[in-house]
Design a protein around this nucleic acid. Structure first.
Lengths: 337, 337
DNA sequence: CCCGATTAGTAAACCGGTTTACAGAACCAT
DNA sequence: ATGGTTCTGTAAACCGGTTTACTAATCGGG
C-alpha cells in the first residue's frame, strides 16, 4: 500500500502538506491541489487508519454494551445506535455481557485501553456500587434505558412509570379488575419504575393489588412462562396480565398456550417495549412502545457531544405510547372460563 | 497514562526489554522480571493498543458482515462468533448491511483500511459478480451460511438440501400430500439448495409439485404472510407448509392466524433454522435446526487460521437435524376444514 | 522601493509501541 | 589462556500518520 510519503513525493510536496490538505487544515492553490489529487488517485492512496489513530489518539469507534444481542430489544437498539454512529463516521463494537459484571468491566477497560473513544452502556443487573465506581473513573460514557445510581454521566431513559400506568389503565378501561403483573429484577431501575406505574394505576382506580397476581424477579421469558402456570392454578386467576417487557410477554404467551388459555378471549395481555416481534405474534401484542430508535440516536448524540467536549443533557426522558394491536379485550364474564 | 518508557525507567531496563518481556519473546532472570512486574504495577501500566497496532499492523479485531442484526438468526450467529472471537482475544465489529451492496463493499474497505484483520461475511442477496471481484482483492475473508459463486475463500455451509428434504419428508411421513413451500430469493445459494431438497423429497415420494403451492422470492415474514393468505384462497389449499426459514414461518403464523387457520390442527407448519424464538411460539415450531453455534465457531476458526497463514478448510458442510416440537400433525380429513 | 502582511508551504518532533541486529559479560571446554 | 556459547540485555530503526513552529516567496500599500 502507498503511504503518505509516496504521495508527497509524487506530488512534489511534503507529507505535511498532504496530511493537512486531506484534513482540510490548509487552503491550497488549485494547481497544487490538483497535483495532489492526481498523485492520490495514481497511487490509490488510503490513509493508514492505525497510524492516524496513534497520532490523534482517537479510534473513531465507540462501544455499545448490552446484556444480550440475541434479545430483540437490544438488537433493535444496537441497530439504531449503529445507524446513528454510521452517519457520524463512527463504527461500533457491540459487547454482549450476558449480564456478567466482569464483561461489563472489561468493556470499560477497552475504553481505557483506547479500543474505543466512548461507550454507550445498558446494564440490567442491579449495581452494588462496583459499576458506579468503575464508570466514575472513565470519561465518555453514556447510560441508556437503565440507570446506575450514583453515576454522573448523561442518561437517556423512557417514561417507565407513565408507560406502565398507561398500560395498566388500558386494561382497567377494558373492564379488568384482577390484573396480574410480571416484572423484572428487584432493584433494577426500569423494573421498579414500571412496577410503580402499575401500582399507581391500580391505586388510582381504587383497585387492590393482590400479591398472588404479582410476579417479579426476572426479565427472562421462562420466568413469565412459569408465572402464568402458577396464575392458572389460582382459584381466582386474573383476567388480564401486564407483562412489563416483550420478552416476558413472549414467555407468558407460551405459558398461556400451554395452559390452554386463549388470548385475548380468556386472558388479556399487554406488554412493554413493542419490539417488531410483538406484531408478528398471534394475536399481535398490544404494547407500550419504547422509542428504541430515539433511544439509540439520542444516546449516540449525547456521547458524541461528550467526546467533543460539548455539553450533553444530563437526563433525557423519552415519551412512550400505547400501540393497540389485538391482545387486549374485555374480561370474559366469571364462570365462562 | 504511563508509557512503556516510564516503566522501563522505573525498572532500570530498556523499553525493548519491557516490550519483549510482555510479549513473551525473551526469558529473563527472576530478579529482573520481578523488578519489571513491580514497575508495571506501580505505574498501573497498560500498553497503548493504538501504538501496538501501528507497529504490528494488526488490530486484533474482525468484522462480521450480516444483513440485519435485528433478525434472530443473524443475532444468534453474531453471538456465536463473538463468543469464539472473545476466546481468542479478538473483538468483533458487526455491520448490518440491510442487504445493501454499498454497505457490503464498505465493510471490505474497512478490511483494506486496517479497521479489522479479517472478515466473516454472510450476504443474502444474489451476486452479479461485483462482490466476488471485490472479495478477490482482499485477504482474510471467510464466507458463512451463504455462498458467493466464484469466490475462492474458506466457506462454512449447512446441509441445506438434505435438511429441506428431511423437513419435507417429515410432512410426507405425517400423511401430507399437498405441501406448500415458502422460499427465499431466486438465485440465492441457500434458497436454491433448500428448494432442491423440497423437490427431491416430493419427487422421491412420487408427489407432484403444484406451482400454486410454491411461493418463492423473499425471506421477509410479510412475504410469507401474504403467501398464506393466497394459499387460503385456493379451492384446494395445502394441508402443510414448509417455510424455509424461521423468519418466514413467523410470517406464515401471522397469516394463518389472520385467516383463522389453526396450527397444527388445520395446517401443519415446519421450518428451517430453529432459532430460539421458534420454541416460544404457540405452538412451538417443528424445524430443521441449523447449528448456528458451530457455524459461528467454525467460521471464526477458519478466519483465524487464514489470519495466521495456516491452511483453512475450503468448504465445510455442517449437518442439520430435525427438532420435533408441536407444529406438525397429520392432515385433517378433507372437508372437515 | 521598502516594509509588513499574507501565501504557500516545510522540517522535525511526536504518538508509543515492536523488531532487528548486535554487544558485553559470564561461563564452559580445551 | 583462548575461543565459542549462552545469557542478558540494548540502540536504533520503524510503523505512517499529525501537529507545531517556522521560513521563503509574493503581494499590496505608502
Amino acid at each position: 500500500m502507498a503511504t503518505i510519503q509516496d504521495v508527497a513525493a509524487a506530488a512534489g510536496v511534503s507529507k505535511t502538506t498532504i496530511s493537512r490538505y486531506l484534513n482540510n487544515r490548509i487552503e491550497l492553490p488549485a494547481a497544487t491541489a490538483a497535483r495532489i489529487d492526481a498523485a492520490i488517485a495514481k497511487h490509490d492512496y488510503r490513509p493508514n487508519l492505525l497510524a492516524r489513530r496513534l497520532s490523534t489518539g482517537r479510534t473513531d469507534a465507540i462501544g455499545l454494551v448490552i446484556p444480550e444481542i440475541r434479545e430483540p430489544f437490544f438488537a433493535e437498539l444496537a441497530s439504531a445506535v449503529e445507524d446513528e454512529a454510521d452517519r457520524h463516521g463512527y463504527t461500533i463494537f457491540i459487547s454482549s455481557t450476558r449480564s456478567d459484571r466482569e464483561r461489563e468491566i472489561a468493556s470499560l477497560n477497552r475504553l481505557r485501553d483506547h479500543h474505543v473513544d466512548g461507550l454507550i452502556m445498558l446494564t440490567n443487573t442491579p449495581d452494588d456500587g462496583t459499576m458506579a465506581k468503575q464508570i466514575g473513573k472513565r470519561r465518555n460514557v453514556v447510560l441508556v434505558d437503565e440507570d446506575i445510581p450514583g453515576v454522573n454521566v448523561p442518561k437517556i431513559f423512557v417514561e417507565n412509570t407513565a408507560g406502565a400506568r398507561l398500560a395498566t389503565e388500558r386494561l382497567i378501561a377494558a373492564g379488568h379488575r384482577r390484573i396480574g403483573y410480571f416484572g423484572g429484577p428487584f432493584g433494577l431501575f426500569s423494573s421498579e419504575e414500571r412496577y410503580a406505574g402499575y401500582l399507581a394505576a391500580m391505586g388510582g382506580a381504587g383497585l387492590t393489588v393482590l400479591p398472588e397476581l404479582v410476579h417479579r424477579g426476572s426479565f427472562a421469558p421462562e420466568f413469565a412462562q412459569a408465572a402464568v402456570l402458577e396464575l392458572a392454578r389460582l382459584r381466582q386467576p386474573p383476567t388480564a396480565i401486564f407483562a412489563s417487557s416483550d420478552y416476558l410477554a413472549i414467555g407468558a404467551f407460551a405459558g398461556l398456550r400451554q395452559a390452554g388459555i386463549a388470548v385475548p378471549d380468556q386472558m388479556s395481555l399487554i406488554s412493554f417495549d413493542d419490539t417488531p416481534l410483538g406484531a408478528l405474534l398471534t394475536p399481535p401484542l398490544t404494547a407500550i412502545r419504547q422509542p428504541i430508535g430515539a433511544l439509540g440516536r439520542l444516546g449516540f448524540q449525547a456521547l458524541h457531544a461528550l467526546m467533543n467536549q460539548r455539553p450533553a443533557p444530563k437526563v433525557t426522558r423519552l415519551p412512550v405510547e400505547l400501540i393497540e394491536r389485538g391482545s387486549v379485550d374485555k374480561p370474559r364474564p366469571r364462570g365462562t372460563l
